[in-house]
């Protein structure tokens, strides 16, 4: 992101902050959202009382993102902040308009999960210029801004490539199901995956199509691919939803055996699927860390003695690979 040497200090600061945030988040962790809401208030964040936060999410029709929206509000409440969550409907103009509305309302900070890494950049610039810090949630934008909190997407792509290579013995035909191509997650996961695949000359991508991060589309696209591809050994769904959809299609076509299905995110259905053997692997993080870290960072930003928008850095939460071998050690998320 074109950062100066000065920002390395900030990055370290952020890294420390993540760990601190994660620790704090874990101490108040409860299994049901309602009890978590009561776990507040936190006296060390007296200055955050009554602040308004605008959250523009990618879509609310994705189970995990819906839960992220709920947790943003819950965590915000813990700091005495009011969070307004908007459904971006995976539409760049809609998200831009929602960002502009929050800028007009002069909210204290904005949380954005951008459906288009380039397309939301002008709106982010506008917010930052108006003195409203923007924290991007799991989907980065090209414009330099206050902070990003999300999964280590590139590392996820690498991890999936390695995982597939290990399960296939370094040889086989791979189908790549891409998500919304303009998103930061898709760009980085696919780039990491392709780079890592270069290490395994025996692995070939035989089909590469978009299924828009959607379970139903993953199912439909893979159903069609199966008809044209006599030999498929592994599928990388760039998010879990598409991998789950594709696996369902393979069962219906009677071709589940012999195909390894991998996803990335670590949502509940995926982890359950690995346990049950309907899918084979995922590059995951503890998904609730994201909304919790975002709100912790936002609250810290509102109370810290730093000038204006001086914070600019990335918090990438490193993923871990989950397969049937270790899935029992992983805590199940709410969605």
């Amino acid at each position: 992101m074109g950062q100066s040497s000065q920002s390395f200090g900030r990055r370290d600061l952020l890294r420390g902050l993540t760990i601190g945030g994660a620790a704090l988040a874990l101490t108040v962790r409860n299994d049901s959202p309602t009890t978590s809401a009561e776990a507040a208030p936190r006296s060390d964040f007296a200055k955050t009382q009554g602040l308004n936060v605008g959250a523009v999410l990618e879509t609310l029709s994705h189970p995990l993102i819906k839960v992220w929206g709920d947790y943003l509000a819950i965590e915000g409440k813990g700091f005495g902040m009011h969070v307004s969550v908007q459904d971006g409907e995976r539409n760049v103009q809609k998200q831009t308009s929602q960002m502009e509305a929050f800028i007009t309302q002069k909210v204290n900070f904005i949380v954005l999960q951008a459906t288009d890494a380039a397309g939301l950049s002008p709106a982010v610039r506008k917010a930052e210029e108006a003195g409203i810090p923007v924290i991007t949630l799991n989907q980065n934008v090209a414009q330099v801004h206050t902070g990003f909190v999300g999964m280590g997407h590139r590392a996820m792509g690498v991890q999936v490539a390695d995982g597939i290579a290990a399960q296939l013995g370094g040889k086989g035909n791979i189908v790549l199901l891409q998500g919304v191509e303009a998103t930061g997650a898709n760009i980085e996961r696919v780039a990491g995956f392709r780079d890592e695949l270069k290490k395994y000359p025996g692995l070939k991508i035989v089909a590469d199509q978009s299924a828009a991060f959607d379970r139903k589309k993953g199912h439909d696209v893979f159903e069609t691919i199966l008809k044209g591809q006599p030999k498929v050994d592994a599928v990388f769904g760039v998010n879990d939803e598409m991998a789950i959809g594709a696996a369902q299609a393979s069962v219906e076509a009677g071709r589940r055996a012999g195909i390894k299905f991998w996803g990335a995110d670590g949502e509940l259905d995926m982890l359950k699927g690995i346990k049950a053997g309907t899918v084979d692997g995922v590059s995951a993080i503890d998904v609730l860390l994201i909304p919790r870290t975002v709100m912790f960072l936002g609250a810290w930003l509102m109370t810290a003695r730093v000038p204006g928008n001086s914070l600019a850095g990335q918090i990438e939460i490193p993923p871990y690979a989950v397969t049937k071998a270790n899935v029992d050690k992983v805590a199940m998320p709410p969605a």
Binding site: N91, D116, A118, P122
Partner: peptide
Amino acid sequence: VLASRLQTGAPEAGL
């Protein structure tokens, strides 16, 4: 004009 405003050709823009 939209591409100029968004600084990109967004695939879902016209939906």
